[in-house]
């Protein structure tokens, strides 16, 4: 599984970071980005899906090929 954050949609709710700090980082302005290239280790896939389902801006995408 691979995910990305759309920087044009993210407004810094930081829900993803709160639920899955292993997968996201947030800057001082609240904007989120994926850790590394967004590849999700199998044991964190549930957390990635949780983050996607909790983003109020629909900014996190599953970009698995």
């Amino acid at each position: 599984m691979r995910i990305r954050v759309d920087p044009d949609k993210c407004t810094g709710h930081a829900r993803c970071y709160g639920l899955a700090p292993e997968l996201f980082s947030v800057d001082d302005y609240g904007l989120s980005s994926v850790v590394g290239d967004g590849t999700v280790p199998p044991e964190l896939e549930d957390k990635a899906r949780l983050a996607i389902a909790n983003c109020p801006e629909y900014a996190i995408e599953d970009v698995s090929g």
Partner: peptide
């Protein structure tokens, strides 16, 4: 688990 709430706005 599915909670895209907007308590803090949007």
């Amino acid at each position: 688990a599915h909670n895209r709430h907007v308590a803090f706005g949007s």
